Amino acid sequence: MEYKITSKEFECFRTLIYEESGISLGQQKQSLLESRLSKRLREIGLETFSQYYDKVTRDPTQEEFTRMLDLISTNKTDFFRESKHFDFLREVILPELMPTKRIRIWSSACSTGEEPYTIAITLIDSVQNPKEWDFRILASDLSTRVLAKAASGIYDEERFRDMLPGMLSRHFLRGRGESMGLFKVKPHLTSMIRFRRLNLMDDEFPIRNPLDVIFCRNVMIYFDRPTQETLVNKFHHYLKPGGYLFIGHSESLQWISHPFMPVAPTIYQRKR
Rank of each mutant, 00 (worst) to 15 (best):
Y3K: 10
E178Q: 15
Q27K: 14
G242H: 11
H85C: 03
T48S: 12
E9F: 12
Q28I: 07
S126K: 07
E229R: 10
R36I: 02
F13M: 08
P116H: 11
L147A: 08
F183G: 00
A120Y: 12
P116D: 10
R196D: 09
F10N: 10
K131N: 12
R90Q: 15
N129K: 15
R136W: 11
P116Q: 11
V146R: 00
S24A: 15
E91L: 15
E114Q: 15
K184D: 01
R208E: 13
Q254F: 14
Q51I: 04
S38Y: 03
T6P: 05
I137C: 08
G175H: 07
R272L: 08
I214H: 07
E43K: 09
F49V: 02
C216I: 06
L168P: 09
R174W: 03
M98V: 12
D202W: 14
L41V: 00
I5M: 15
H237D: 08
G243P: 06
L37R: 06
F235M: 11
L147F: 06
T48D: 06
M192Y: 02
K101Y: 13
V146L: 06
P116V: 06
K240N: 11
I267C: 14
F172Q: 03
L123N: 13
R174S: 11
K149D: 06
T118G: 11
F10E: 09
R104H: 13
P165C: 12
S7G: 13
S21C: 09
S50G: 09
Y155M: 01
K271N: 15
E11H: 14
I214L: 09
F79C: 10
A264Y: 14
K29E: 04
E96A: 11
I207K: 02
F65G: 00
G45I: 06
A109Y: 00
S252K: 12
F65A: 00
G181K: 04
R102Q: 15
R170H: 14
T122L: 04
D162H: 15
K271D: 14
N199F: 06
K234G: 05
N209V: 13
P206C: 05
G243S: 05
M192I: 15
I193C: 00
L253E: 08
F13P: 03
I44L: 04
L16A: 03
E19M: 12
C216A: 13
G177W: 08
R58C: 06
L245Y: 03
L94W: 11
H171A: 07
S252M: 10
L198E: 08
I154L: 10
N233G: 05
H237F: 10
G242W: 07
A109I: 00
S38C: 00
E204M: 10
Q62H: 11
I72Y: 07
R170L: 14
I17N: 01
L69Y: 01
L245G: 02
L69H: 03
P187Q: 06
L239T: 02
P210A: 11
R225T: 05
K149R: 12
F235A: 00
G243Q: 06
Q228K: 15
D141T: 01
I124F: 12
F246Q: 01
